[in-house]
Computed example of a mutant assay.
Amino acid sequence: MQETPLCLRVVNFLFYTMSDSNTTDFTNSSTFILLGIPGLEAAHVWISIPFCAIYAIAVFGNFTILFIVKREPSLHGPMFYFLCMLAVTDLVISTSTLPKMLSIFWFNLREIRVSACLTQMYFVHCFSVMESGILVAMAFDRYVAICNPLTYSTTLTNSVVVKIGLAVVLRSGIITLPYPFLAKQWPYCRTNIIPNFYCGHIAVVKLACADIHISTYYGLFQLFSVIGMDVCFIVISYIQILRAIFRLPTKDARLKTFGTCISHLCAISALYIPNLVSPLIQRFGHNLPLHFLVLIASVYQLVPPMVHPVIYGLRTKQIRGRLLQVFTNKEI
């Protein structure tokens, strides 16, 4: 009696692994087909125009941030090191999805190999978690700068910044590792068509002809534990920051100090609002049009990499001044 469930599991496993050969929907089991934005195929060329502009702004803006920080010795400090990490993360996230999206829109190149799909899945989710961790590190930077300014240089030394950066990278790499492994173990015997422009975890595992509750639960666990924990750390940091600001003697001093946090708060809003809303809509918005769900996912993936360099370029005095100086020198 005890051996029957194991035997059934073996039979089911063999059935699932062999069933794709008996299914007409699967034209090539080694590839997936990305539809782009389902229902709006006729408008793909027109839709590609704003997306291409978003990608161009993201690439130019983030490379500009890296260039200015590297060239200007006065910017070689913890806040700008974290900003460079954020710029690199944004470049990887946008480059992981946009070129493939544009190839679908412009050249109808919809096929993607399973290995490339799983790699894209890992990079997208890994660097999204990494981006969240960097924003936590930047919140800690603002906390030390405002609440303990006299110890700022001794607390956030270069070695501490490196350790924080390594912790952020290791955490994101480890916690995202189950995504491709879970997706790879499921049998895909019904269809290989992904109604999206990139290989998101949920979008892929929904195609599996198996019980995918483990993947779904792990995705929700990652969403609420990692993002939720990061948001809690940021909220705690800003509670302490606001307490320190309200203790300042004059209104001008309060506004000036709070102004140093505006860029970070805008970056947080640009990431976490779509980061929390999009996965929940993807999982529970079953009655919403499919093209609407895909467009929401595109906001989650593409807008933060474009917005972050714009925010810091306009709001950070040192970067804005250096940028104006660079363009002035070119004009001369």
Rank of each mutant, 00 (worst) to 15 (best):
L8S: 12
R9Y: 07
T17A: 13
S21T: 05
N22D: 11
T23W: 05
T24G: 13
T27I: 11
S29I: 10
T31S: 12
G39L: 11
G39K: 12
V45P: 01
W46Q: 14
I49F: 11
A53C: 13
A56W: 08
V59S: 01
F60T: 07
L66R: 08
K70I: 03
P78R: 10
T89H: 02
T89C: 15
L91M: 12
V92W: 04
I93C: 10
L98Y: 02
L102V: 15
L109G: 08
R110E: 14
L118E: 03
M121Y: 04
M121N: 15
Y122Q: 07
V129P: 00
M130Y: 08
I134Y: 10
I134L: 13
V136S: 00
M138I: 04
R142A: 09
I146L: 07
N148K: 13
S159R: 13
V161G: 14
G165S: 09
A167I: 03
A183L: 14
K184I: 02
I202Y: 15
I202P: 00
L207H: 08
A210E: 09
D211P: 03
I214D: 06
I214F: 07
L220F: 09
F221T: 07
Q222A: 11
I227M: 00
G228C: 05
I234Q: 11
I236C: 15
S237A: 15
I245L: 07
R247F: 10
P249R: 09
P249V: 06
T250V: 05
T260K: 06
C261A: 09
C266K: 05
A270Q: 05
L280M: 12
G285H: 08
F292V: 15
F292G: 03
F292A: 14
P304W: 02
H308A: 01
G313H: 03
N329W: 03
N329S: 09
K330D: 10
E331T: 10
